[in-house]
């Protein structure tokens, strides 16, 4: 099993810092290195506010975005995700975790020679949909996948 008796899920959340986020507003405002860092988007706490801050208006679900990730996270604190866009003129790929206190995790602006294929690793506090948001020709498209975060243990 495994039966994570210790630390508990709460302990795990505390460990990753997401519990704190869940119960308190983001009070820390990072010192801007570049003016371009989208403070409003990274601090937003609802999907609607996040999209608004990113300038996204009702994105289209697209089968031309491939979101690769394990069905069950090996470690909620380190969850590999990869998005591949087959939509022509893709210029931006972002990752959002629906049930994280702040959904927007990372946004990648890709140059003309860069393939629309990005891999990174995100933190997840609980089982959630992860969304790949693609910008192409000024329009937004999404693909999503549920990734399960489990306590672990108890295996065969």
């Amino acid at each position: 099993m495994t039966l994570e008796l210790q630390p508990s899920r709460r302990g795990f959340l505390r460990q990753t810092g997401l519990l704190g986020l869940a119960v308190s507003a983001v009070t820390f405002l990072p010192r801007m290195a570049y003016a371009s860092w989208n403070k409003a988007a990274f601090g937003a706490k609802t999907m609607a506010d996040t999209y608004k801050a990113m300038g996204v208006d009702s994105p289209t679900v697209s089968a031309d975005i491939q979101l690769n990730a394990a069905d069950i996270a090996e470690n909620g604190a380190v969850v590999p995700v990869e998005a591949i866009s087959k939509i022509p003129n893709t210029t931006q790929i972002s990752f959002l975790v629906e049930k994280n206190p702040a959904m927007l995790t990372a946004q990648f602006d890709i140059g003309p020679d860069t393939l629309p294929q990005i891999s990174t690793r995100v933190k997840m506090g609980q089982t959630s949909n992860v969304i790949a948001l693609v910008k192409a020709d000024g329009k937004f498209y999404t693909a999503s996948k549920e990734i399960k975060v489990t306590l672990g243990g108890c295996g065969g």
Partner: peptide, 9 residues
């Protein structure tokens, strides 16, 4: 597939 979840990572 789930060795690091079912058993200690």
């Amino acid at each position: 597939p789930y060795t690091p979840i079912a058993n200690p990572r």
